[in-house]
Amino acid sequence: MNSRIGYIAFNTFREAVRDRVLYNLIAFALLLSGAAILVGEISIDIERLVVVNLGLTAVSLFGVVIAIFIGIGLVSKEIDKRTLYTVLSRPVRRWEFVVGKFFGLTGTLVVNTFFMALGVFLALLYVAHKFEKMDGWVLVALYFIVLQFLMVCALALFFSSFSTPLMSAVFTFALFVIGSLAEDLRGFARITHGLAGWIATAVAYVVPNFSALNVISQVAHGDAVPGRLILYNSVYALLYSTMAISGAVLIFQRRNLK
């Protein structure tokens, strides 16, 4: 990796940490331990199911919120505050800046997710008293969640390269919600005919397919995740993020800083 991208990414990470982004972990820990204790009290057989479901859903939602809220300001905030002036007057290309910011935020999210995952496994140990082989699939679900973050960050960055922070947040969140229903949309498209069918098909395939990246209930039930899906999702998320980032770069390249 180009060293300037690394420096920019590290600075972005440092900024997030100093702006107390990781404090969300406290809320997450409280939520999860509360749930684990409650579940441990009442039920007999479904503790694991509840903890994995709830834990992973929380990991995903916390991360998506952070990805959107920091993502929309990654570049636009630096334009508004004019912190960019003294960066771009150095031998830093604009695309390096965008990519560095992107890696900084995704790095932050990976660290954040690491601690949350630790929490999920601790809660699992607390309710089940031991780990089983099927718990390994939880790691795959976490990997998919990180892939989701990559795509959400990239989309937030893309939208914020041409619209206001508020609109970017709305667009990104809307796409996250629609994308989470992508499989349903595709099913709907298959049984619909005529113009509506065409439109549904188009929408279903253009929106990011977040539902394929969501295997939470599957792994909560202890089901395996096919290797083919892991490969497919990795390539898909990588391509989708690269496209969104490239779009953001293309727009940002031409932009007059205010």
Partner: peptide, 28 residues
């Protein structure tokens, strides 16, 4: 080339020392 913008503003999560170090890195 060095550039001082009008009414400059910098990353306020950094100290002056950290900022200069960062900029030194970016300048190669």
């Amino acid at each position: 080339v060095g550039f001082l913008p009008e009414q400059p503003y910098f990353y306020d999560h950094l100290s002056a020392r950290e900022l200069l170090n960062y900029y030194g890195q970016l300048s190669g």
